[in-house]
Amino acid sequence: MSASPVSCHPAAAPAHPTQPLPAPSEEDGLPALQHKVLHSTGDPTEFMAELERTCAALPQRINADPEGVERGLSKLVLTLIELLRQLMERQALRRIERGTVSDDEIERLGETFMRLEQRMEELKVIFGLEGEELNLNLGPLGNLL
């Protein structure tokens, strides 16, 4: 789940504003692919950040180099932990709303989730991952978190 060889991460080629787009030339019998923007209000660059994020969530290859694999796997594991943490937390909030937990239990739940969140923050720092990176694009299901 780590960065693909070339993707739309800021450091890589495609998204770089000064990189000319090597569209196929007419000699290949292929049409030039340039004029795809049918309409845009405002500055198209406003969309760049959002589109880059979309692309960052695309299926990516696990890199062959050991460092890439480690990062990719830690990202996947942390993503799953974060998913479970958020699901449990939301479930707890729902139970509280319904009033099916005692005062004592609320205190203990809160204490636990608070510490879990702190620990997640620490792990993210250790593995050099940003919050948004701990998400997966599930295609038709939207994003995981």
Binding site: S4, V6, A13, L21, P22, P24, D28, L30, L33, R61
Partner: peptide, 17 residues
């Protein structure tokens, strides 16, 4: 094939042709 801009465009150009 690696994910490279030129290659992606080539794929797309064939499809569009």
């Amino acid at each position: 094939p690696r994910i490279e801009v030129a290659q992606l465009w080539r794929h797309e150009a064939v499809v569009e042709a």
